[in-house]
Amino acid sequence: MSKDVLTIGGKVFTNRLFTGTGKFADNRLIAGMLASSGSQMITVALRRVDLSAGGDNILEYIPKSVTLLPNTSGARTAAEAVRIARIAREAGCGNFIKIEVITDTKYLMPDNYETLHATETLAKEGFVVLPYVLPDLPLAKRLENAGAAAVMPLGAPIGSNRGLETASLIALLVENCQVPVVVDAGIGRPSQAAAAMEMGADAVLVNTAIATAQDPVSMGRAFGMAVEAGRMAYLARLAEMSALARASSPLTGFLNE
């Protein structure tokens, strides 16, 4: 068997936990979390500088070996997402982009329609596009055809820590998508990350659950191990629980006649 790796946008990842930089009490914890979890891709956001305050440079805490995944958070339309993506690329942070378009401020659900349009535009411009979406199979296929490098269905609302509430819909994506499926949002504990990997997700993206833990560095490690365990279980083929059907009378007896 060849080594189990994940390839996105031509980059090879040996670790399947993607992390985020949001909500850390202290940005210095990010470097420790990256080291303990082994994560090789991390999200960042782009914001206007507050001229009155100085400000920390978050990129200082991220080793160069880790792939930056700028997101388009704050965008409410495809056009805004496209603008943010172009800025992020110009800023020299590579051509990976997580498209996140949210028009619903109540539940923070991604807007699949705007996200698809942004994906179409950005994939044509050579971006490695990872759209964050509700798990909708026909939409995922459209994203794939539009050139998305992966699809990132949510497990539960952002920051809710509720786990894989959309498991059965994600399973359809896992079964039918040609591009990697990365479960993003809602994963609150390592066991949920492991469950996502067991069902065949290619990676998971975890931010809040790590950043807001009492000890983010240890929690990062726990998630890293859970993702690895889940992946290993998937590759090792879980035993099925279903029972065999038994016909009341032989179906193949005629072959002996």
Partner: peptide, 10 residues
Amino acid sequence: LELLRFVGGG
């Protein structure tokens, strides 16, 4: 003019 920088985000 827009002055932007990278910040924490998920």
